[in-house]
Simulated assay, not measured.
Amino acid sequence: MDVQRRDQAEPPTRDALLTAWRAEERGQPEGWDFSALEGRMVEDPVPWDLDRTYREVLTGTRTALDLGTGGGEHLLRFDGHLPDDTFAAEGWAPNVAVARRLLAPHSIEVVHWAHDRDREPPTPMPFPDARFEVVLSRHEAYDAREIYRVLRSGGHFVTQQVGGSELGEIHRALGLLPRYPEIDLARLAQEAAQAGFEVLDADEHVGFYRFADVAALIAYLQRVPWDAPDDFSVDEYADELLALHDDTIGAGRPLQATKIRFWLHLRKPEAPSCPDEASRRMAAC
């Protein structure tokens, strides 16, 4: 699908552009819904089928956890495959309430928790050892050691992540350095192996986002504020945004930015058979 863009006989004035861009400043929407950007932003698809892998690991499982569930919308796509004992975790407070409303009718409890990348040792997950057979994480930060701890022997962890150097063109235009350039497939695969995981599958894809105009970019950044400066607003960054417009849409060139995705399918190795009841209650069994 092509990004829709209006043809204008006369270039818009600075004030007209800023007025249109300010109209996009509505704050981060609740949940995890990008449908309002249909026709204004397109992105290259990844070559793997994450949903299929989710369904495969969920089939027949008895306990599951979804990290970074947002408003719970994506998790419910697998409603027919979710076990009765399913939990979800979300770190952004407004989304917790949204997810609880959506998931409560499905008997899925939502806890308010998120991993802090800057904390060492990692923030403990609010679950006991060996609590889950499957853990899912779509674009949510995690610590491999904690995932390993809460997984049962033989359990699966499937995650898709956003590369830490994504949107580099936009960051440079706004004078922003990537916040987490260390987040890439090689590093997370290494951390998984160090935690004790087997890597069953992994891949990385580099493509592009394409925006109809700067207004569409601003609308996108409202939904992913961690990809924008902390003080981001149209008025605060008016000069940078106008320069970006002049260099792209104003010059007849596409407004695009690098998209980076990678994924990992990890497995906690089977533990040796447990000789007695006491051992079976421990995390390794």
Score class of each variant (00 low, 15 high):
239 D>L: 06
89 A>G: 12
181 P>W: 07
26 R>G: 13
11 P>Q: 09
255 L>H: 03
159 T>E: 02
198 E>K: 12
204 E>R: 15
148 Y>I: 00
98 V>P: 07
224 V>E: 12
68 G>R: 02
133 E>H: 02
13 T>G: 15
218 I>K: 08
263 W>N: 14
203 D>Y: 10
255 L>K: 02
248 T>L: 05
80 G>F: 07
240 E>V: 08
274 C>M: 02
108 I>D: 10
41 M>E: 09
62 R>E: 12
2 D>C: 14
11 P>V: 07
20 A>W: 00
221 L>S: 13
126 P>M: 11
213 D>N: 15
151 L>R: 05
226 W>P: 05
179 R>V: 00
7 D>P: 02
266 L>G: 09
162 V>E: 01
155 G>W: 01
196 G>R: 13
212 A>D: 13
65 L>Q: 09
234 V>M: 03
98 V>H: 07
105 P>K: 12
265 H>S: 15
187 R>D: 08
123 T>D: 03
6 R>K: 10
154 G>I: 07
82 L>W: 07
175 G>T: 06
9 A>K: 08
240 E>P: 13
191 E>Y: 08
133 E>F: 03
84 D>Y: 10
252 G>T: 10
164 G>P: 00
18 L>C: 09
126 P>T: 11
285 C>W: 06
266 L>P: 13
263 W>Q: 14
103 L>F: 08
35 S>Q: 00
231 D>V: 03
131 R>Y: 11
155 G>F: 01
173 A>H: 03
244 L>N: 15
276 D>L: 06
239 D>P: 06
275 P>Q: 00
72 G>K: 01
189 A>L: 09
150 V>I: 13
37 L>G: 04
120 E>P: 05
207 G>F: 07
11 P>I: 01
251 A>Q: 11
95 N>A: 07
93 A>D: 13
95 N>M: 04
186 A>T: 15
59 T>Q: 09
209 Y>I: 09
61 T>I: 05
162 V>T: 11
58 L>V: 09
259 K>I: 03
93 A>M: 08
179 R>M: 02
173 A>W: 02
39 G>C: 09
36 A>R: 04
19 T>C: 01
34 F>K: 06
73 E>K: 10
254 P>E: 04
181 P>L: 08
101 R>H: 14
169 E>M: 01
216 A>D: 11
93 A>R: 15
127 F>R: 07
233 S>H: 11
159 T>R: 00
211 F>Q: 09
137 S>D: 02
9 A>I: 14
231 D>H: 05
252 G>C: 12
134 V>I: 11
126 P>Y: 10
230 D>I: 04
